[in-house]
Computed example of a mutant assay.
Amino acid sequence: MEDTDESTSLIIYILYVAIFGGLLTVLRHYFKGAQFNEKVTAKDKVAVITGANTGIGLEIARELNLRKAKVYMLCRDEKRALDGKATLVRMGCDPTRLIIEQCDLANFESIRNAANAILKAEKSIDILVNNAGVMFYPKYEKTIDGHEMHWQSNHLGPFLLTELLLPALKASPSARIANLSSMLHLQSDRIDVSKIDEKKEFGLLKPYFRSKLANVMHARALTQRLRKEGTHNVIINSCHPGAVNTELNRHFFLANLFKTVGKPFMWFFTKTPRDGAQTPLYLSLSKKVDGISGKYFSDCAIKSENVLALDENACEDLYNYSLETCGLQK
């Protein structure tokens, strides 16, 4: 009788462990988010990715290279770019289709130099992923061009790069632009460009919120402009890659604590960089996105954006301001 009771207890224990393990597996799958599994080649395509030496950018570069694309890695630090390229080669990438260009989004001259180098080498560009950005920048600081760090790094820099590369994107039979925004753009208030660079507007997260809203508005406004001029072969969308454990959080004052004490929790409850790359890859390659432009995506599906981004006049005003601020005459 005693042996029977022990056997029953063991079976119940194993059953509980199996159920608990199954629940953890389901939860982990949920936190990983949607995966881009379409069998789409990128052969002969030219892709440009900012921040391609680490995190989400590195994983996007990896996947596009493995799918046979030529990838321009736009990185602020050349040494880290070389380290990132070496990592990609170890992951199976073809080094002859990985080209490094130094590009600091907080420096307009650096952006122009990188764009000029690419345009000299390529007649057309098929994919542009505006991935790089900053978050939790610890202090109010202006760039060399006189703009608040989040605002230029996350909006004005990518905006200028996109405009400079637009002629080559238009020369592609079918070009894709993906702006990496964030679901935190939903927390942004209305963007007042007359005050955007002022110190009194600075805070721990407000500058980030506004810059990510600008990414969504940029995609909508550029779509409207392209369609009005009769250009239909270029589409641009924005996306939330998910809560991803990357170096984007490096400026957060509790970052080191999370890296040590919270590491197991971060692993379980956040996406890996590869998971975070799935929606940008979806926007870059999926046939399901053909003809869809100016939308906001998350987990490989269209989602509702901040209502402020639906104001076409506000989007157009932001676009015109950005043209003028970046020194572009149109």
Rank of each mutant, 00 (worst) to 15 (best):
Thr260Asn: 12
Ala277Thr: 02
Phe252Ala: 15
Asn256Glu: 15
Lys259Met: 12
Thr260Asp: 05
Asn237Tyr: 08
Pro241Ser: 01
Leu248Asn: 03
Ala219Val: 03
Leu281Phe: 06
Phe258Asn: 05
His240Pro: 00
Gln278Thr: 05
Lys288Gln: 14
Leu283Met: 06
Thr270Asp: 02
Thr270Pro: 01
Ser286Val: 10
Ser298His: 08
Tyr282Cys: 08
Gly242Cys: 14
Thr223Pro: 00
Ile236Pro: 04
Gly294Gln: 07
Phe269Asn: 00
Gly262Thr: 01
Ala221Met: 08
Arg220Trp: 09
Val261Pro: 09
Glu305Ala: 09
Asn237Ile: 06
Val216Pro: 02
Trp267Tyr: 13
His251Cys: 00
Lys287Leu: 12
Ala243Phe: 13
Gln278Lys: 01
Cys300Trp: 01
Cys300Lys: 00
Glu247Phe: 04
Pro207Met: 03
Phe297Ile: 08
Val289Ile: 15
Lys228Ile: 03
Val261Thr: 09
Phe253Pro: 15
Lys271Asp: 06
Val289Pro: 04
Gly291Lys: 08
Phe268Thr: 11
Gln278Ser: 02
Lys263Phe: 11
His232Ala: 12
Leu285Tyr: 01
Lys288Arg: 12
Ile235Trp: 02
Asn256Tyr: 14
His251Gly: 01
Phe297Val: 10
Thr279Gln: 02
Thr246His: 06
Arg250Pro: 06
Leu226Phe: 05
Lys287Ala: 15
Thr223Asn: 11
Thr270Gly: 00
His240Asn: 05
Lys259Gln: 14
Val261Tyr: 10
Arg225Tyr: 12
Gly262Cys: 05
Glu229Arg: 15
Leu222Lys: 06
Leu257Ser: 11
Ala214Asp: 02
Ile236Glu: 11
Lys303Ile: 10
Leu281Glu: 06
Thr223Val: 01
Lys288Val: 07
Ile302Gly: 03
Gly291Glu: 06
Ile292Cys: 13
Trp267Met: 12
Thr260Phe: 14
Val234Trp: 12
Arg250Phe: 07
Ser284Phe: 10
Pro207Ala: 03
Asp299Ser: 12
Lys212Trp: 10
Lys288Tyr: 04
Asn233Ala: 13
Tyr296Pro: 03
Thr231Leu: 09
Val234Thr: 13
Thr246Glu: 04
Ala301Cys: 03
Arg227Ser: 09
Asn245Ser: 12
Leu254Met: 13
His232Pro: 00
Gly291His: 10
Leu257Ala: 14
Leu226Arg: 04
Leu283Cys: 00
Asn237Cys: 08
Asp299Val: 05
Leu248Phe: 06
His251Lys: 01
Val234Asp: 11
Phe253Arg: 14
Asp275Gly: 05
Ser238Val: 07
Glu247Ala: 14
Thr279Leu: 03
Ile236Tyr: 10
Leu257Asp: 07
Arg220Ile: 15
Arg227Pro: 00
Thr231Asp: 10
His251Tyr: 13
Thr231Met: 12
Leu285Asn: 04
Ala277Gln: 00
Phe268His: 08
Pro207Tyr: 04
Thr223Ala: 02
Asn245Lys: 10
Gly276Tyr: 08
Val216Trp: 07
Ser298Ile: 00
Asn306Tyr: 02
Ser238Phe: 06
Gly294Glu: 04
Val244Phe: 11
Phe253Val: 15
Ala214Leu: 02
Ser286Glu: 12
